[in-house]
């Protein structure tokens, strides 16, 4: 494991902790898209179907458990916890699942390494992760007042993807034969989706003003 991969994972973990902090201590999920959170839960469930029969390391195993547990608990909080649920911007969170899930499923059935259930589900999870942020970005654009924790959450998620790109560049040059087209292209698309957000996030940080995305 290289430093970019570790930094990427830690950034990913931090983003989830920031979100849990907001939900658990402030009891608010204002500005957070439940659709995106449910898509992430689906991403982890379909990607880690091999959690009990493909062991790579204790680190990977524990991280998989953490990602599964945290994503499911976030969805639970937003749906079932009374105070948290009240703060959910339901009317603004209108992105339709089927626009994301169906194309990803079709693409995974067509472009994959092997046409088996687990392999297609794994590929589906990569495509789905790439675009799962879309409902969140749409919601951000509609939110007049983006609070700091929400802004940080999305920034950390984007940073995690950027660090994974660096990890792949590093691995390409240090590990002979390290080529993973499906992972790379899905990862690149995912990172590009954050470009616009990054631009406004850094601008607001530099000028020390509240983050607001143009409509």
């Amino acid at each position: 494991m290289n430093v970019f991969r570790l930094a990427g994972d830690m950034t990913h973990l931090s983003s989830i902790l920031v979100l849990l902090l907001k939900i658990h201590t402030i009891k608010s999920c204002a500005g957070i898209s439940l659709k995106t959170q449910e898509l992430y839960a689906l991403v982890f469930i379909t990607r880690y179907l091999d959690i009990f029969d493909r062991f790579t390391s204790i680190y990977n195993f524990l991280m998989k458990l953490i990602f599964l547990g945290s994503s499911l608990s976030i969805v639970w909080y937003m749906r079932r916890h009374k105070a948290v649920h009240r703060s959910y911007d339901k009317d603004q969170d209108t992105f339709r699942y089927q626009f994301i899930v169906l194309p990803c499923l079709l693409l995974a059935l067509v472009i994959n390494h092997k046409l088996t259930f687990k392999e297609v589900m794994w590929t589906f999870s990569l495509y789905l992760e790439a675009v799962a942020i879309l409902p969140q970005l749409v919601l951000l654009q509609r939110t007049r007042n983006i609070d700091n924790l929400t802004g940080q959450y999305v920034f950390l998620l984007g940073a995690y993807r950027a660090l994974y790109l660096l990890n792949w560049v590093y691995r390409y040059f240090t590990e002979p034969g390290f080529v993973r087209w499906i992972t790379w292209i899905a990862g690149l698309v995912q990172t590009l989706l954050y470009a616009d957000f990054f631009y406004y996030y850094i601008l607001s940080w530099k000028n020390n003003v509240k983050l607001e995305l143009p409509a």
Binding site: R5, D9, H12, T56, N60, H113, K114, W122, R180, I182
Partner: peptide
């Protein structure tokens, strides 16, 4: 297929 055995990332 080599690609199938390299799921060492999260």
């Amino acid at each position: 297929d080599e690609q199938l055995d390299v799921k060492d990332e999260l």
